[in-house]
Design a protein around this nucleic acid. Structure first.
Length: 327
DNA sequence: AAAAGGAACAACCGCACTGTG
DNA sequence: ACACAGTGCGGTTGTTCCTTT
């Protein structure tokens, strides 16, 4: 009945990863691509659980990850998405391509939850100064009301989106998600200088082996796309560490503006194929792929629309029993 | 300067889901 | 239909760092 552990616990190392271990893992992935994690410890000699290897890669070593320094807009986005989706961190992370679900989850638990709580606690007293999300101090009632309105708006937008999913929308991502991913916000040396959180270290690691690496063969299953992702991601990491972040931004833009592309031309998130490289974060950032093609810009518009909740949309009873019913 | 407490973050654990034979 | 392997995901814990006393 019980599932066997992913690895026998004897001799399995736990705790923080060392640079050497990271290097071993990265080197292995260079040759074989991500995936088939069970074979990773055996083939690399890492005394780590396969799961641990996967986690280490996806959360920290994978190129293109931005860590720390959440911007106000990111905060706001997370708060909105959390209200909409609940604690579905992976789904939320898909709207912040540079962020991992783990990172967002941690940030929520350590920062945002407190801020919101504080906000709510201020409901009856004189509201103290603002949250980092730039919300005006509002009472709990107002907050809930606003939240519900937001949810309603999102729901409506998504419904509309789904109903017209087949045709390209002319919605302009005026407030494109990309807009908050500004070059200045892209990975720089993190303020926290611990090894694990310093993406530059990883980038350097990757730089070295990318130069002489031949194109890794696509391995298996769906890692065809993920392999492409790696290729591109590594390139992105390269550019991040060396010359800034323009290419990363471009990657984001090409990805996030997918709704403006012709359906057959790009295929957006779902298997563009055509031999060309897929989007950097295709694997992670596919807002519509698992829940239908939701034109991102509608969500964006909602997410960044400061006027939401102030106007015509009234109070709606919105107990969101099942978030999936949104879709 | 040292200790205590809290905050932040990295990593682990266990369940759920999916694909395959 | 079933069992199993592989992977994804969210909750939780452990450790480290920082701030306060």
């Amino acid at each position: 009945m019980g599932r066997p552990p992913c690895c026998d616990k004897i001799g399995v190392k736990k705790g923080p990863w060392t640079p050497e271990e990271d290097l071993m893992l990265v080197s292995y992935i260079q040759e074989h691509g991500p995936g088939n994690w069970r074979s990773v410890p055996a083939n690399t000699g890492l005394m780590r659980c396969s799961k641990s290897c996967r986690l280490r890669w996806t959360n920290y070593l994978r190129p293109g990850i931005k860590r720390g320094n959440f911007t106000d807009q990111e905060e706001k986005l997370i708060i909105h998405l959390q209200a909409l989706l609940g604690n579905r961190w992976a789904a939320i992370a898909s709207y912040l391509p540079e962020r991992t679900d783990n990172d967002i989850k941690n940030y929520w638990n350590t920062h945002l939850k407190k801020k919101l709580k504080k906000l709510q606690n201020n409901e009856d007293g004189a509201p103290t100064s603002g949250s980092a999300t730039n919300y005006q101090p509002i009472s709990k009632g107002q907050w809930e009301r606003r939240l519900q309105t937001d949810i309603h708006m999102a729901r409506q937008a998504l419904r509309e989106a789904l109903s017209i999913e087949s045709k390209p929308t002319d919605l302009k991502p005026s407030n494109s998600l990309c807009s908050y991913i500004k070059p200045g916000h892209l990975p720089t040396a993190s303020s926290t200088t611990t090894y694990a959180s310093n993406t530059e270290n990883i980038s350097r690691l990757l730089q070295g082996w990318m130069r002489n690496s031949t194109k890794p063969k696509p391995t298996q299953t769906d890692s065809g796309s993920s392999q492409n992702s790696i290729n591109k991601a590594v390139g992105a990491a390269d550019s991040v560490s060396s010359e800034g972040s323009a290419s990363v931004v471009n990657n984001f833009e090409s990805l996030l503006n997918f709704e403006s592309q012709t359906p057959e031309g790009s295929g957006s998130g779902s298997g563009s194929g055509s031999g060309s490289e897929t989007s950097l974060f295709q694997d992670e950032c596919k807002p519509g792929s698992d829940q239908g093609q939701v034109p991102l810009s509608m969500i964006e518009t909602w997410l960044f629309d400061e006027s939401v909740g102030h106007g015509e949309v009234g109070f709606i009873d919105m107990t969101l029993d099942d978030p999936t019913e949104l879709f």
